[in-house]
């Protein structure tokens, strides 16, 4: 028996919005510790890894680990039927899960709606992602990151990220011209939304596809801050932490080569 009750229904809605563009079908792997999802996009360029810890749910019950194969688009559509303040309860039979039942309760408990989502059998590869220490980690405002990506998208399809000791430069070069955004280290504790923290071992310069980054920034509503982890010739990590409820991590393979 699997049951998870999430008091902040909006969280699930936002999560789905963040990943459904990237992945169409995915397995939610449920076990005692929580719900996890890992999926690569079709072209194996980006990977999304999602974790919702059991602590985020009240209550959370999962007797044994199992997978819920879900079409994310369908789930997202059903979740749109839930109000932002609704309490969402997920239920499934862990022995023979062929459907996931969702129950939306309005805060005042006046309205209860129930939906059932048919599950699918998804044969998916699980990548083992090593925990790496990145050459550079940047913690910055998620809104700021989203804005930078949006702005530079005007110029080009790809952005190069250069991390120096006290500043990070996002720059793009395209047919119409070029543009760059420089963020200086700003460890202001008062205003976390303006905070820019750079931890650097060695300076890094990498190029990424803005198309994918734009997709990642759909996770902006989930968190005020975003963490970027960069290492030379390694995939970029974009992490949105949802307090104690869990995190959503995006990995993006860099662009390499002459261009």
């Amino acid at each position: 028996m699997f049951e998870a009750r999430l008091s902040q229904g909006s969280l699930l809605k936002k999560l789905l919005e963040a990943i459904k563009e990237l992945v169409t079908d995915a397995n939610f792997d449920c076990n005692e510790t929580g719900i996890a999802l890992q999926a690569m996009d079709n072209s194996h360029v980006a990977l999304v890894s999602l974790l919702l810890r059991s602590e985020g749910f009240h209550p959370y019950r999962c007797d044994r680990g199992f997978s819920l194969g879900v079409n994310l688009n369908s789930l997202s559509k059903i979740l749109k039927c839930a109000g932002n303040d609704d309490i969402i309860t997920l239920k499934a039979d862990d022995n023979s899960a062929d459907s996931l039942s969702l129950c939306f309760e309005s805060p005042s408990n006046e309205r209860v709606s129930e939906y059932e989502l048919k599950l699918m059998d998804i044969d998916q590869e699980h990548l083992s992602i090593p925990e790496t220490d990145y050459d550079a980690t940047i913690i910055m405002s998620s809104a700021e990151f989203q804005r930078i990506c949006r702005d530079l998208m005007v110029i080009s399809e790809s952005v190069s990220v250069d991390v120096a000791k006290d500043a990070v430069v996002f720059s793009a070069e395209g047919e119409m011209g070029s543009g760059s955004v420089k963020l200086k280290q700003n460890p202001s504790v008062d205003k976390p939304e303006e905070q820019v923290v750079i931890e650097l071992n060695t300076s890094v310069s990498l190029q990424f596809s803005l198309k994918y980054l734009m997709n990642f920034t759909k996770g902006t509503p989930l968190s005020d801050q975003v963490m970027l982890g960069l290492s030379e010739n390694m995939p970029l990590l974009v992490e949105y932490k949802m307090d104690d409820a869990g995190y959503i991590r995006f990995y993006l393979a860099p662009k390499i080569g002459e261009e």
Binding site: S43, H44, K255
Partner: peptide, 19 residues
């Protein structure tokens, strides 16, 4: 033009056979 230099994640994360 877009993706000629885009590499994939396959090289970075070893993925064992789950089947």
């Amino acid at each position: 033009s877009e993706e000629s230099n885009q590499i994939t994640l396959d090289g970075f994360f070893a993925y064992p056979i789950s089947s």
